Amino acid sequence: MSSVWQRWRNKLPQSESEYQQQIDPLRAAAPIPVLWLFGKTGSGKSSVIHSLTGAEQATIGEGFRPETKSSQRFDFPDPVEPLLTFLDTRGLGEADYDPAADIAKYSESTQLMIVTVRVADHALADILQPLRQIRKSTPERPVLLLLTCLHEATGEIDLSEGVDPFATEHPNHESPSPIPDALQTLIDRKTEQFAGLYDQMVPVDLTRLEDGFADPDFGGPRLRQAILQYLPHAYRQALLSLGMEDQGHRSKRQRRARWQVLASSSLAATAGAVPVPWVDIPVVLAIQSHLAMRLGKIYEQELTASHWAALSSAAGSRIATRMALREVLKLIPWVGMAAGAASAFAFTYALGMSWDWYFANLRDGRTPSTDKLREIFADELQRGHELWTAK
Results as ranks from 00 to 15, higher is better:
residue 292 A to L: 15
residue 54 G to R: 09
residue 387 L to G: 00
residue 131 L to P: 04
residue 386 E to S: 13
residue 117 V to I: 14
residue 42 G to F: 09
residue 201 M to D: 03
residue 286 A to H: 14
residue 132 R to S: 09
residue 132 R to G: 11
residue 221 P to Y: 06
residue 351 L to R: 11
residue 171 P to C: 02
residue 249 H to Q: 02
residue 268 A to T: 01
residue 243 G to F: 01
residue 275 P to M: 03
residue 46 S to W: 08
residue 152 E to F: 03
residue 314 A to L: 08
residue 321 T to C: 07
residue 288 Q to Y: 00
residue 48 V to D: 05
residue 8 W to H: 14
residue 311 L to Q: 04
residue 241 S to C: 08
residue 141 R to H: 00
residue 106 Y to S: 04
residue 346 A to Y: 07
residue 243 G to P: 09
residue 41 T to V: 10
residue 148 T to Y: 01
residue 247 Q to K: 06
residue 341 A to Y: 10
residue 343 S to W: 10
residue 79 P to L: 13
residue 291 L to R: 06
residue 228 L to Q: 09
residue 307 H to M: 05
residue 346 A to V: 10
residue 204 V to D: 10
residue 345 F to K: 03
residue 85 T to Y: 01
residue 239 L to K: 01
residue 82 P to K: 08
residue 223 L to M: 12
residue 390 A to V: 02
residue 379 D to H: 15
residue 229 Q to L: 13
residue 269 A to Y: 01
residue 142 P to H: 05
residue 229 Q to D: 05
residue 3 S to D: 11
residue 83 L to T: 10
residue 300 E to F: 12
residue 171 P to Q: 04
residue 327 E to D: 13
residue 166 F to I: 01
residue 195 A to G: 00
residue 130 P to E: 00
residue 15 S to D: 05
residue 118 R to W: 01
residue 103 I to Q: 02
residue 206 L to H: 03
residue 193 Q to L: 15
residue 309 A to D: 15
residue 186 L to Y: 02
residue 155 G to H: 06
residue 169 E to D: 15
residue 92 L to H: 03
residue 390 A to N: 05
residue 305 A to S: 14
